[in-house]
Design a protein around this nucleic acid. Structure first.
Lengths: 143, 143
DNA sequence: ATGCAGTCTATAGTTACTATAGGGTCAAGC
DNA sequence: GCTTGACCCTATAGTAACTATAGACTGCAT
C-alpha cells in the first residue's frame, strides 16, 4: 500500500522521461490525467509510475505508441487469450529484423563506395562519381 | 545534347518518385524550380532528371535530406578536397552501423520474451509479465 | 525580498513525406 | 461539340513522437 504522491519532475526523473514527454503522453490519452494540487500542479501516484515505466520499456524495445496503446488495452481484459499480445510482439520483431537486413545491405553498399575512394578533389571523388553514374538520362519518350 | 522537356508525371515515373515528393523537393529548394508551360505545368529537363536521380539514390542509402543538400553544395566546388564528402559518408555509415547494433540487441531481447511465453490468458502472459516486472515503485523520496 | 528551480498552458518546429480539397488542362472517343 | 478520365495546379493539414519556445505562476532557500 503506497499512497505517496509526487510531482511531474520526480516522475520524470524516476522513469528517465522528459517532463514534456509525460505531458505529451497525457495529452494523447496514453497516461491518465493525474490529480492536481490547489495550484494546478500535477500529482502522480504509484499507478502512474507503473504505467509510465511500462510505456517506456516498450518504447525502448521500439514499439510504436499505437501498439503500446493496444497492449495496454489488452491488459484490461485479463481473460482474453494471450495470442493477441504474442501477435503484436512477433509482428514487431519481424519489422525489426527486416530493418536490420535493410540496414546491413545498405551499410555494405556504402562501405564499398567509401573504400573505393582514394581522395583527391571533389571533381575526382569516387563516392560522388559512384552515386552519379547510373541513369544520366530519362527513358526516351517511352510511354 | 538533349533539349527534351517533360512533365512532372514522366519525371516521377522515370525516377520512381511520387509527383508530390518532387513538388516537395522543389518547395524546400532541393530541386531547382523548372520552367512552366503557358498553363503553368512544370517542364523538366535532363539536368533535373540527373539531380533527382542523385537525390533518390542518396535517400535509398539512408542519407537525410540535410546531408544530401550539403553534398550537392559540394559538387559546386569541384576543386575542394574530397575529404568533406568522405566525412559525411563515413559519419552516415557510423550511424547506420550503430543502428544495426541497437536493433540487433533489441531483437534478441524481444525474441527472448516471445519464446518464453507459453500462451494462456492475458493475465498469465509472460511477455506482459516480463515487461511489467521491474520497477514497480518509484525511488522512495530520494533526491 | 530575491533568486532560482520547478511548474503551467499554448503554439510551433522537427523529418520526409502523404493525403485531401477544390480546381484547371489535355487527349481520345462519340 | 461534349464528355470522360488521366494528368496537372495550389494550399493546407496530417503523420510519429516528440522537442523547443514563450510567457506566466509557484515553491523554497537565503
Amino acid at each position: 500500500m503506497n499512497t505517496d504522491y509526487f510531482t511531474i519532475g520526480k516522475l520524470a526523473k524516476d522513469t528517465d522521461t522528459k517532463v514534456v514527454t509525460i505531458r505529451y503522453y497525457e495529452s494523447i490519452g496514453l497516461l491518465p490525467a493525474p490529480l492536481r494540487t490547489g495550484h494546478n500542479y500535477r500529482l502522480y501516484n504509484c499507478d502512474h509510475f507503473k504505467r509510465l515505466s511500462f510505456i517506456r520499456r516498450c518504447r525502448s524495445l521500439g514499439f510504436p505508441l499505437s501498439q503500446i496503446r493496444e497492449i495496454i488495452a489488452l491488459t484490461d481484459q485479463p481473460d482474453e487469450d494471450c495470442q493477441k499480445v504474442d501477435k503484436i510482439a512477433r509482428g514487431h520483431l519481424d519489422i525489426i529484423e527486416s530493418k536490420i537486413q535493410d540496414l546491413t545491405q545498405l551499410a555494405s553498399e556504402l562501405r564499398q563506395k567509401i573504400t573505393a575512394c582514394q581522395g583527391g578533389t571533389i571533381a575526382q571523388c569516387c563516392i560522388l562519381k559512384n552515386l552519379l553514374k547510373q541513369n544520366t538520362t530519362p527513358i526516351k519518350s517511352a510511354s
